[in-house]
């Protein structure tokens, strides 16, 4: 059943129309990637799921129930949340950051700590880092902790707001791979916000490209969007005209070599 946005709009008190009449559904165990330019309402939409923001009109349903009928605090504890860089509790050790939600929910501390150590290993962190404070970690390590923390109470839903936006491209790639591996094992329902179209295509089963005002420019699988950009905005946004998106094959000694628009080789057809 998953998450369903049904005709949601959000107008902030100052009159900003962040989202207008947005509808979409995210099936369980799938990843929705919301991409768009800055200020297109991505964060606003994502925060409606855990009621950090209530929509002005419309409803958000989780497995068929309106989130408005659920207790805010209980709802948030049941949903994993990976904030942007800098969202860890700086005054709590790594291990205590990871155990935050289980402890809030009443899991015995010893149990929560044992689970947390396992999770840290799972996200690719050495358990010896558990006793450090977040300020003593690199940006990439901090975001791994943030992912472990979000998974600690084994939620069905994971919300991620530009989780890897502040790390360098190599580490970002690494974190994306890690997330893909985790997701194939855990099968969470994920809403991921990013402004990196390549990240959206790599991680999203379904991608929604938003334009200012929270209006859907195009929605579909990465393949569908690349194959048929719905309009100039999308074409421009995904860089459809960029040389590296226009691949073709050339025949070389009987092998089909794929080259991009600048004739640079990118691979071989098997």
């Amino acid at each position: 059943m998953g998450i369903e946005f049904s005709g949601v709009s959000k107008t902030y008190p100052d009159g900003t129309e962040a989202v207008a009449e947005f509808s979409c559904s995210v099936p369980s165990h799938r990843t929705l990637a919301l991409v768009g330019t800055s200020g297109s309402g991505k964060t606003t939409l994502m925060r409606m799921v855990n009621r950090m923001i209530d929509p002005t009109t419309g409803t958000v349903l989780i497995d068929g129930s309106d989130v408005r009928d659920l207790d805010k605090v209980a709802l948030r504890r049941s949903i994993g949340y990976v904030p942007q860089a800098g969202g860890l509790l700086p005054h709590r050790k790594v291990i205590d950051n990871v155990t935050t939600v289980p402890v809030l929910c009443g899991t015995p501390k010893a149990q929560a700590r044992a689970d947390a150590l396992e999770l840290l290993a799972k996200v690719g962190l050495d358990p010896s880092l558990a006793k450090r404070y977040p300020g003593q970690l690199s940006g990439g390590q901090q975001q791994r902790v943030a992912v472990a923390r979000a998974l600690a109470a084994d939620p069905n839903i994971l919300l991620m707001d530009e989780p890897f936006g502040a790390v360098d491209p190599i580490v970002r790639r690494d974190l994306q791979d890690q997330l893909l591996a985790l997701q194939s094992e855990l099968g969470k329902t994920i809403v991921l916000v990013t402004h990196d179209i390549d990240e959206a295509f790599r991680l999203g089963d379904q991608v929604i490209i938003l334009r200012t005002g929270g209006i859907i420019a195009q929605s579909g699988s990465p393949q569908e969007i690349v194959a048929a950009p719905a309009n100039d905005f999308v074409r421009d946004f995904i860089g459809a005209d960029r040389a590296e998106r226009t691949l073709r094959t050339v025949d070389l000694d009987g092998r089909q070599v794929v080259v991009d628009g600048d004739d640079r080789p990118v691979g071989v057809l098997s």
């Binding site: 904030p83 969202g87 509790l89 809030l104």
Partner: peptide
Amino acid sequence: RVREAAEAMGH
């Protein structure tokens, strides 16, 4: 950012 993340986790 820290306060909002803490809120979103269910404090």
